[in-house]
């Protein structure tokens, strides 16, 4: 069970959260201008690294706010937590 620090509520059990996948994926500015390849990439392709990963979580059974976390997908260690709209803090290390 992960212990996740919500930026608003502090550390809470994983069961209070829902996962939102990769962070910082912007909706295309002009979807109509994209090729099929580009649109397909936007819809279906997300990073899937083994190691540090910037991802979204929502504190569903708490403050109901989305936020970002940098987590190591191999060790599950959460290296940083930051609010929506904030830039990703630089963290190093992580499994290879």
């Amino acid at each position: 069970m992960l212990l996740i620090s919500c930026p608003n509520c502090g550390p809470r059990d994983e069961t209070e959260f829902h996962y939102g996948g990769q962070a910082h994926v912007a909706y295309p500015e002009d979807p109509n201008a994209l090729t099929d390849e580009e649109w397909g990439r936007y819809l279906f392709y997300r990073e899937n690294p083994k190691g540090l990963f910037a991802e979204r979580w929502v504190h569903s059974s708490g403050c109901r706010k989305w936020f970002n976390a940098v987590r190591d997908t191999a060790t599950y260690r959460i290296a940083a937590v930051y609010r929506m709209g904030e830039t990703q803090p630089s963290v190093t290390g992580g499994a290879k």
């Binding site: 994983e14 990963f53 060790t75 499994a95």
Partner: peptide, 11 residues
Amino acid sequence: YNGYGQRGAFH
């Protein structure tokens, strides 16, 4: 969540 840890949560 995404994970390569070959383990998950007890809940």
